[in-house]
């Protein structure tokens, strides 16, 4: 694992801007949602209004009928779609961890230094996992500072724990993006493919709550094991660790592929599509 720590430090430094940008955005959003919790509770007729919304819309935003409870509020305004938004960072950053540098041509020189491929891979992966965690932690801090001043009746630790499933889910889709980047022609394509799967899974989760026929498919997807606002009450550690383990498993396959591959000098790869020619004679 030679070079792991050096790569970890360097990659984390490269993520600085994204951590600040995404983290502050999430913190401000958390601050706002935490701050207006009491105001939302006092809106008259809100429940009736929500009840009039079509089921197809409600299906994608958690338990909107339970807005008066911290769990329902947190589900609706945070865990229902924040993973989708932070997922943009997650899949694009993970897809570019190695393939991005390879396309820019900088990986060639980095790997000519006394750093093992394993050290490089896991150093960068660890930095990515930490960067994602720090972004979510900043989001947590934004919400947490409002706790003493609102009737959002949740402690600091349960709120912190409720962010963990989001981290596990993002890690899993990040690992998927990294794996895709090992065999798809470009980091961009890997980010698009894994991001597409993230969105598809989000939509499937919503549709499956409307259509029972979709439930068997939904049951084997990551979102089935993603605990949204419910984690405020009691986190299902088996689901959390399940997502983490699957994410690590995907990263492990990506690592194996990275061990065996030739490092490109630069540029994107291309698909090898053979032109079909009519048989002669």
């Amino acid at each position: 694992m030679q070079g792991l720590f050096a790569e970890f430090k360097h990659t984390l430094r490269r993520f600085r801007g994204q951590i600040i940008g995404w983290g502050l955005g999430l913190a401000l959003y958390g601050l706002m949602m935490g701050a207006i919790y009491d105001t939302i509770q006092t809106i008259e007729g809100l429940e009736e209004l929500l009840a009039s919304y079509p089921q197809e819309m409600l299906a994608f935003f958690g338990d909107m009928m339970a807005l008066s409870t911290p769990t329902g509020y947190f589900s609706t305004y945070y865990t229902s779609y924040i993973p989708l938004i932070i997922g943009i960072f997650s899949v694009s950053a993970a897809a570019g961890l190695l393939a991005g540098d390879e396309e820019r041509g900088t990986l060639d020189l980095t790997l000519a230094y006394p750093v093992s491929r394993s050290g490089l891979f896991w150093g960068r992966w660890l930095a990515y996992a930490v960067a994602t965690a720090v972004i979510l932690f900043l989001g947590y801090l934004g919400w947490a500072v409002t706790l003493p001043y609102s009737s959002f009746d949740v402690g600091f630790l349960p709120l912190f724990i409720a962010f963990l499933p989001m981290w596990a889910l993002l890690l899993l889709f990040g690992a998927l993006a990294l794996l895709f980047s090992m065999f798809l022609p470009s980091a961009r394509l890997a980010a698009m493919a894994s991001g597409g799967l993230l969105v598809a899974n989000f939509l499937l989760a919503g549709l499956a709550s409307l259509n029972d026929d979709l439930q068997p498919i939904m049951d084997v997807t990551p979102f089935a094991f993603f605990q949204g606002g419910d984690a405020l009450e009691s986190i299902k550690w088996s689901w959390f660790f399940g997502l983490v383990v699957v994410g690590l498993g995907l990263a492990l396959i990506a690592w194996l592929l990275f061990q065996r591959r030739d490092i490109r000098v630069g540029g994107e790869r291309s698909w090898r599509i053979r032109r079909l020619r009519p048989a002669r004679g």
Binding site: R14, R104, G105, T106, D108, L109, V265, G266
Partner: peptide, 8 residues
Amino acid sequence: LPGELSLE
């Protein structure tokens, strides 16, 4: 020193 040197 690579032939096509790329630096961050």
